[in-house]
């Protein structure tokens, strides 16, 4: 555990909590892509199946349970409790276009052709693109609520911090996992355009809206 890894995890946790609180407090999931949230629930489920097979640490177990629990709570709020506020018309990204190729890639490029390892690899690849339905939705509507942009900022920051964590681990522990690193780089790059808008607009007190 190093400072980048810890702050990365906390940033990820902050993103998840911000989104849950936003939906709960406003009693609305307007502007939120339910499809991205389904993908994140799928990511956590397929990655954390090792909760059943191995114990790593108390921290590891608790965080995994929180992430999974929050992911399903978010999906529940969007598709059940506050379904009436869900903007399905603008959330039109086709999930199979992500899940099928990612599943194929996970079967082809992995560390070990075993059930849990392929699911882990699938979750890593899927996480790197899971935000696309949300970004697609924002590009369709042309705007995002400020609180939604805070959510996206912390979600992107988390993977960027993990990149520093991997650099740290490579130098000080000789550890590197090429699958996680490549997927993490892709994931972070997908947020770059958003980071730019966040810094130039949202942090200056303006609402995030895209030029028509």
């Amino acid at each position: 555990m190093n400072i980048f890894r810890l702050t990365g995890d906390l940033s990820h946790l902050a993103a998840i909590i911000i989104l849950l609180l936003k939906i709960w407090k406003t009693r609305s999931c307007a502007g939120i892509s339910g499809k991205s949230q389904i993908l994140f629930a799928l990511v956590f489920t397929t990655r954390y199946l090792d909760l059943l097979t191995s114990f790593i640490s108390f921290y590891n177990t608790i965080m995994k349970l929180i992430y999974i629990g929050c992911a399903y709570a978010t999906v529940y709020l969007i598709y059940m409790k506050f379904k009436a506020t869900y903007d399905g018309n603008h959330d039109s990204f086709r999930l199979e276009f992500l899940v099928v190729p990612v599943g194929g890639l996970a079967c082809l490029v992995n560390h070990d052709f075993s059930f849990l390892e392929i699911l882990w690899t699938f979750s890593i690849y899927l996480e790197s693109v899971a935000i696309l339905p949300q970004l697609f939705m924002i590009s369709k509507t042309g705007e995002a609520e400020t609180i939604t942009t805070h959510y996206l900022f912390f979600l992107g920051l988390y993977r960027a911090l993990y990149l520093f964590n991997w650099i740290w681990r490579f130098y000080f522990e000789g550890f590197f996992d090429m699958i996680a690193i490549v997927a993490g780089v892709v994931q972070t790059i997908l947020y770059c355009d958003f980071f730019y808008l966040y810094v130039t607009k949202v942090l200056k007190g303006k609402k995030l809206s895209l030029p028509a």
Partner: peptide, 10 residues
């Protein structure tokens, strides 16, 4: 080393 044995990251 086998990365699949060291899944301590989240």
């Amino acid at each position: 080393d086998n990365p699949s044995q060291e899944k301590d990251e989240l």
